[in-house]
């Protein structure tokens, strides 16, 4: 299909990359907003008081590894190996779900410790940033599950491996955003109250 275009690139893949370029500005704005407000914790808990680095490290690692399984799923479908493709797609979705589960657990813990969405500018910025990322991951999981369903209906074959590749690009992007968030928001020493 792609041979027909001027650049030789497929429309869909090019569009996904343009979209990812756009997403950089979106997450950039959210991260900058967070950085601006990380000190503004008003009367509520400070980031340094509540972040649980070991826990987040584990869930970050899970998300990172889902990138591996995603690329393995792509490699499988490109070989025409439908069985492994399904296996890795499912694993990726599961790892993503584990990450989301971790985020839900983290959020509930924070709320229990007194950091609600409206507690302070810091809390609003934190939940908004990580929430946006979480929504991205969740959408990714929905897309992966759709791929799986489509695979079991026999629609996902070597011929349309590009669909897997494009959803994979999105998935990896969401992963690299978390690489940044994990370092900038969690690991860089945080203010305490």
């Amino acid at each position: 299909m792609s041979e027909e275009t001027t650049t030789g690139l497929s429309h869909n893949k090019l569009a996904m990359w343009v979209f990812l370029g756009s997403e950089c500005l979106l997450f950039g704005a959210l991260i900058s907003t967070y950085l601006l407000y990380r000190n503004k914790f008003y009367d509520g808990p400070a980031p340094g008081d509540i972040f649980d680095i070991p826990f987040t490290s584990v869930s970050s690692f899970v998300l990172l590894m889902s990138s591996l399984t995603m690329v393995l799923a792509l490699a499988a479908i490109q070989r025409g190996d439908i069985r492994n493709n399904r296996l890795w797609l499912l694993t990726t979705a599961l790892l993503g779900a584990v990450f989301i589960g971790g985020q839900v657990y983290e959020f509930t813990t924070f709320i229990r410790e007194g950091l609600g969405y409206t507690t302070s500018p810091f809390s609003s910025a934190f939940f908004t940033l990580t929430g946006f990322h979480g929504v991205h991951v969740s959408l990714g999981i929905v897309m992966l599950m759709s791929l799986l369903i489509s695979s079991y209906r026999g629609k996902l074959t070597q011929k349309n491996s590009e669909t897997v590749e494009i959803i994979g690009l999105y998935w990896h992007f969401v992963d690299v955003v978390w690489i940044i968030i994990f370092t900038v928001i969690y690991l860089v020493p945080n203010p305490t109250s």
Binding site: Y117, T119, S120, P121, S123, S124, A125, T128
Partner: peptide, 9 residues
């Protein structure tokens, strides 16, 4: 949310 709540800084 408190993005523009100046009372909270």
């Amino acid at each position: 949310a408190n993005f523009f709540n100046t009372e909270m800084g």
